[in-house]
């Protein structure tokens, strides 16, 4: 896994992004540094590699097209996470319109994951993802970012624009729901 840059590297990338002469090279560094963590962030929400790849591409293309609007007030990773999250939620809302109802996913996700050659977990792992998928989208995001990415509430707060108090409450509610879902399936 590519190691994300430290604060010093981040500042250097931001400075280079502002200079038209070094912009493309700096963007290349940003793609290398952040594509992997953003990919996993997206993949845990949409599950399939194909959809994750499309959303990740859209994320970086949008970032490039709006690079002049990035003022450097926040970290570049926070900015990219925001774009990736918005792109993911847009994708999910389009997908929701195409499917009949969310309830139709119950009992289906785990089975689909177990059949996916790019899923390495066992049945219990697949059931965990199915339980997470049953949560409202914002709760899923918070749960994934906290549980799998070990992100601090402050970082999540900057990305989602929600207070840390609300995030803590959301995470605990989500964890309880996930536990109940898995217990009900045992």
């Amino acid at each position: 896994m590519t190691k994300p840059p430290n604060n010093c590297d981040e500042r250097s990338i931001i400075e280079k992004l502002r200079d038209p002469a070094t912009q493309t090279a700096a963007f290349s560094l940003a793609v290398r540094a952040y594509s992997e963590q953003l990919y996993w962030h997206i993949r845990r929400m949409v599950f399939t590699h194909e959809d994750s790849n499309d959303i990740l591409q859209n994320t970086f293309i949008k970032a490039w097209n709006n690079i002049d609007n990035f003022r450097g007030d926040s970290q570049i990773s926070t900015w990219l996470y925001r774009i990736a999250t918005n792109e993911t939620l847009t994708h999910l809302s389009h997908k929701r319109i195409e499917t009949v109802s969310l309830n139709s996913d119950e009992g289906k996700i785990a089975h689909e994951l177990e059949c996916d050659p790019l899923f390495n977990g066992n049945h219990a792992d697949a059931l965990l993802h199915e339980a997470i998928n049953s949560l409202p989208e914002k709760q899923r995001l918070v749960f994934n970012m906290r549980y799998f990415n070990d992100m601090k509430y402050e970082e999540i707060s900057q990305i989602l624009g929600t207070s840390t108090g609300a995030l803590k409450a959301s995470y605990h509610i989500a964890a309880k729901k996930v536990e109940e879902y898995i217990t009900s399936k045992d």
Partner: peptide
């Protein structure tokens, strides 16, 4: 992480994005 990607995906992804921009 319970998911995986095709081999060499991230390197290929970087090249695809840079070609596009």
């Amino acid at each position: 992480n319970h998911f995986s990607v095709p081999e060499g995906y991230f390197e290929q992804f970087h090249n695809t994005i840079m070609e596009q921009i």
